[in-house]
């Protein structure tokens, strides 16, 4: 079986190298990479950790599609050589390893979970209020969605676009029954929510099958429409504010009161 692996460092020679790997039943792409590392190319760089599709480290582009190497069975791929390349949207470090640290910088910009002043719990939360959020908590931060999103991948707009993984995070916080912050305006103005054209590539590649577009991005776009495109809501908000009955929502400029970091 031929496995073509991208090799190279920034500024140095780059290209695909073909390796002959003996196929084994049930083999995943990461097994092939391990075989190459052990027997054929001991200095091949690759990031991995759990081999169970849970740590999100082994993201790569297999036959041109962003996938987890440990979750991609060779026998599911079409006949012919298997191509393994690093994530295209992030800077190369070496071979299959890219620098995804930009994502952690974005993460820091999102105000963490913040309960109302003085409301420290413990809380009894109804299932109906929380069941939407389980899905978002499945994220393993593999950044495959970030990699496939054409806004980052092709247009390199990371100075004004957070990317789908962080829309998932914002949606999870916004829909939390105990969170009192409003991050929608920040997500629109700074996170580039309007840049997303809901073409669903993030959803297609998510190994955790999170419905990123339908359940996180579109609901955020609708909340943004509530704020900016809905005159009825505008009047309602105005009346409520004038009568002093505004919701207990803290502004983004206020210091968050703490809470879990993600």
């Amino acid at each position: 079986m031929e496995v073509r692996v991208f090799r190279g460092v920034p500024g140095g020679e780059q290209g695909e190298v073909a390796y002959d790997v003996p196929p084994v039943e049930g083999m995943v792409v990461l097994d092939a990479i391990h075989h190459i590392q052990k027997h054929l190319q001991t200095d091949l760089a690759c990031r991995w950790n759990c081999k169970a599709a849970k740590c999100g480290s082994c993201s790569a582009e297999i036959n041109g599609t962003p996938r987890l190497m440990c979750k991609t069975r060779i026998d599911e791929l079409p006949e012919g050589p298997v191509t393994v390349r690093p994530l295209a949207a992030f800077p190369l470090i070496k071979d299959l390893v890219t620098d995804v640290s930009w994502n952690y910088e974005v993460n820091k910009k999102i105000p963490p979970f913040t309960a109302a002043e003085g409301d420290r719990g413990p809380w009894r939360i109804q299932e109906v209020d929380i069941d939407r959020l389980y899905e978002f908590r499945r994220c393993i931060e593999c950044f495959l969605c970030q990699d496939v999103c054409h806004i980052l991948r092709n247009h390199d707009m990371r100075d004004r676009f957070y990317g789908p993984r962080f829309f998932v995070r914002v949606a999870g916080l916004e829909m939390h029954p105990k969170d009192v912050l409003n991050r929608v305006e920040q997500t629109r103005a700074e996170g580039g929510l309007g840049l997303c054209n809901i073409t669903k590539c993030c959803t297609e590649v998510c190994p955790e099958h999170i419905h990123i577009t339908d359940n996180a991005i579109i609901p955020l776009k609708e909340r943004n429409a509530d704020a900016h495109w809905d005159p009825i809501n505008f009047v309602r908000r105005k009346l409520r504010r004038d009568s002093g009955g505004g919701a207990a929502t803290r502004g983004l400029d206020e210091e968050p009161a703490g809470g879990p970091p993600r």
Binding site: R4, G8, P10, G11, G15
Partner: peptide, 13 residues
């Protein structure tokens, strides 16, 4: 099996 180098070329940048 020894590896075979293909498509190696100048860096993309």
């Amino acid at each position: 099996m020894a590896s075979e180098t293909t498509a190696m070329g100048p860096s993309a940048g």
